[in-house]
């Protein structure tokens, strides 16, 4: 599904450059549940944002389902992200002025979909996530876990091929976090490819592949022993 070659990202700082991603080579297959870990400032979120097409200032090659994203214009990338990706944020990022149902409907409202079809999808999603009774509430009336649940519902309502999550349980207590991770596992079981960024080993254990990023480099890949071996030989 995802094929990244030599991905790099830097920021201008004064007279020089600060590299946040360095020569990342990465392949992610459909159906994988991948965890990105690493210390603060390692580049995890930067890599996630680049894959999610929230950031378009990177260099390198990026193929999504065989399509060269690096050759696409801004509009095409936006269309690809709208169609195939869903994003879950640590801070939920629900819109306070919209109800639960309206928040979930939001990505569909940008798709030129007939209203009846949208309403049907929203109803199904509310049902799927067991939050029908909360559809007219506002985010301020929900607990953190419930808000994140709505955030996930919003991210998957259009059945994206890829779900990206940036510290999805960072603001939740352990009970709520467990519920969320169980949900991710179920979604992955149903076929959604998931890429999560987390500091939590517990959360990482829900995935079936672990990537470690350090100082902008991809230093460990649980599915790529050669990468691990290369790192070990470098450090030796």
């Amino acid at each position: 599904m995802i094929d990244i070659r030599n991905l790099e990202r830097s920021y201008k700082t004064g007279a020089g450059q600060t590299w946040v991603l360095r020569r990342i080579d990465l392949k992610i297959d459909r159906g994988e549940f991948v965890t990105l870990m690493g210390p603060s400032g390692a580049g995890k979120s930067s890599l996630l944002n680049a894959i999610a097409l929230l950031d378009d200032q990177w260099l390198g090659e990026y193929y999504f389902d065989g399509d060269p994203v690096h050759a696409m214009g801004r509009k095409q990338r936006a269309e690809l992200a709208k169609r195939s990706m869903g994003m879950v944020f640590q801070s939920y990022h629900l819109l306070d002025e919209l109800t639960v149902a309206e928040n979930i409907d939001l990505p569909l409202s940008y798709k030129n979909m007939p209203r009846a079809e949208r309403q049907a999808l929203v109803a199904d999603t509310l049902d799927r996530f067991n939050i029908v009774g909360k559809k007219d509430l506002f985010p301020s009336q929900l607990s953190g876990g419930q808000q994140q649940l709505v955030g996930i519902a919003r991210a998957v309502i259009h059945n994206p091929a890829l779900l990206l999550a940036d510290e999805p349980t960072g603001n939740l207590h352990s009970e709520q976090a467990k519920e969320i991770m169980e949900l991710f596992k179920e979604l992955n079981r149903q076929g959604t490819t998931i890429l999560q960024v987390t500091h939590s080993e517990t959360n990482a254990s829900y995935g079936n592949r672990l990537l470690e990023v350090r100082d902008g480099w991809l230093v460990n890949d649980s599915s790529n022993p050669r990468l691990n071996a290369a790192q070990e030989s470098t450090t030796r």
């Binding site: 929230l54 509009k75 992200a81 994003m87 944020f89 990022h93 819109l95 990505p107 940008y110």
Partner: peptide, 16 residues
């Protein structure tokens, strides 16, 4: 800005 960024992240184009 947060609201605008979320909308854009969820697919709202600049004309929208």
């Amino acid at each position: 800005r947060r609201e605008i960024a979320v909308r854009a992240a969820l697919g709202a184009g600049s004309s929208r």
